[in-house]
Design a protein around this nucleic acid. Structure first.
Lengths: 329, 329
DNA sequence: CTGTTAGCGCGTTCAT
DNA sequence: ATGAACGCGCTAACAG
């Protein structure tokens, strides 16, 4: 290993002078600096981050724990957002996957704490309440796409209500008056929030709410989406547009409509939610949908960790879900 | 911060004795050990990984650099495989995304080197040749799902040839004699390897090769897959089965077949490649396909870093692509 | 079985 | 502008 000492011996200067040069201390003679720089290149010196960490008491490290996100294509942009933001702030990311297991999470947090991470993020692959081990409170923490029941930890999640409202509004503004909803189960925030947004939009535009037009995709999968779409088509007074609780539901709905020769969007408009990679864009016609702000949540989390607000109560940030216009509306 | 010293003062013992307990040194009196353990709990001592790193000269850290994999749902299982394997070996993963930019990669490698990573992995989101900065040679490195032209670095990639061979063989064993191929471009290893496997299988089973049955999906996307499938259906003597170079191609082919009322798999068998999340399983009927061993490549890379073979020449490992049987064959 | 000494690579005193 | 000495938290080597 090449150390400051090596460079010092190589130049006949003191360790401290080398250190000054490495750290851009102005109190160094220009000539000396040049000599040192040359020597550094020559011997191939590289600072030792661990030693610096010990002295400066800063690890320049953030931990990112995920239940399954690293393994779930769905939410992987959280990693990208966090990583890029961290990198802009000279921080590195330590990652770990826990499969949501609390004990495993505790162990992972423990090792991160031993490494003196300056903050930890816990990310879920879908918006939900999570159970976390106690030791996570020992580090500054931000929850990404999830929250704890008692809201003792700051978190950043998608604004489901607003997304539901705007998805419905887009359909209304296209002239639709009967709008079906194939919702996600009410057990998840996405289901509750999007439904509430849907109802609010209806009310705002003076369109009566019709319970026959609201169905639930219990599994969130494409096959159930197919079944619910069929049911929706078969009601007495069928809708002219369907707001699908997620893109997989829409994927199933596409099949149902195509089988019956119902054209999208001419005969039936469809709007999805999630902007799920490799589905939304590749469906035929490409699916218009509300995007989940994964990348932005990742960034927000790092930003918040590096720049915590003074406020006493932990924040719950709700990020905007942008509309991705394609060809199904 | 709680240090060994604190615990030592708390117990009246020497620092070294505390250290022994923490490190499970057998040379400690059982009673002393108990006293120390209690004290550790009481003062909330936690070892400092950076200090250990300096002393032991081991960082217990591996770097994972990705061009876009962290951001690309497609290959994210590389992370999961690497992470799990690392974790089993008491190592943590430092990750970085470089978007394939060589200078950025050089900078990232530099910071990883400063942190004395014990190895670095460079992962690509699809099998291809990559250009890497010189400093990557300063750390033990494994390339994942990619390789350098001169093969100076060990790498692990999918066995494209074998996958192509077996995909074709599966179709043949189902009784098909005329088998179409919508291949990926020959510029990528996947295109070359899968085509070679296809031809080899044909030859092995004494089925003549017919150039009319081989088409190329230039973009690898679903819409081009649709077009090529249409073309294949329209040849004079059409195939009874199609081997699609990737699942997105198959996704497009599904649309082409459905439009024409051709049933899958009764009228036309379809086999994909990649086992792409949220596509293969959700297509109707679910797509039978060859899975890319992303998870396994991630594991292999860590294993190789932690347990490098003695051989002089860098290995290029080719991992098996398992057949995922669903309902399209 | 336990403690002392030394030193990992670095940066902060405080001198010179 | 430069350097000597000390200490960060930890462990290896060597006493005792």
């Amino acid at each position: 290993m090449t150390t400051l000492k090596k460079v010092a011996e190589h130049t006949g200067l003191s360790i401290k002078t080398i250190s000054r040069v490495v750290n851009n201390d102005p109190n160094v003679n220009a000539q000396t600096r040049q000599i040192v720089m040359d020597a550094i290149r020559e011997v191939g010196y590289r600072p030792n981050a661990a030693a610096r960490h010990i002295r400066n008491r800063r690890s320049h490290t953030l931990g990112l724990i995920t239940d399954e996100v690293a393994t779930n294509p769905f939410a992987v942009n959280i990693i990208k957002g966090a990583q890029e933001c961290a990198s802009e702030h000279n921080m590195m990311l330590l990652i770990a996957v826990t499969s949501g297991d609390v004990e495993r999470t505790a162990a992972v947090v423990e090792t991160m704490l031993e490494r003196q991470v300056e903050g930890v993020m816990y990310a879920s692959w879908y918006h939900r309440a999570v159970t976390l081990p106690d030791n996570i409170y020992e580090a500054p923490t931000v929850l990404v796409d999830c929250f704890v029941e008692d809201h003792r930890l700051p978190s950043v999640v998608p604004d489901e209500f607003d997304g539901g409202f705007r998805a419905t509004e887009i359909l209304i503004q296209k002239g639709h008056q009967r709008i079906g909803l194939i919702n996600l189960p009410l057990e998840v925030p996405a289901g509750r929030g999007r439904l509430a947004g849907y109802r609010q939009a209806l009310q705002h535009y003076h369109i009566p709410f019709d319970a026959d037009l609201v169905r639930t995709n219990a599994t969130g999968q494409a096959d159930a989406g197919y079944a619910e779409a069929c049911a929706l088509i078969d009601v007495a007074n069928p809708p002219s547009a369907i707001f699908c609780g997620n893109d997989r539901t829409a994927m199933g709905a596409y099949d149902a409509l195509k089988e019956r020769g119902i054209r999208i969007p001419q005969d039936m408009a469809l709007i999805g939610f999630d902007n799920q990679d490799f589905i939304a864009a590749y469906l035929r016609p490409p699916l218009s949908t509300m995007a989940l702000p994964h990348y932005e949540m990742g960034r927000w989390a790092v930003e918040h960790l590096l720049n915590p607000p003074q406020s006493a109560a932990p924040i719950e940030a709700m990020l905007h879900c942008p509309y991705i216009q394609r060809a199904s509306v």
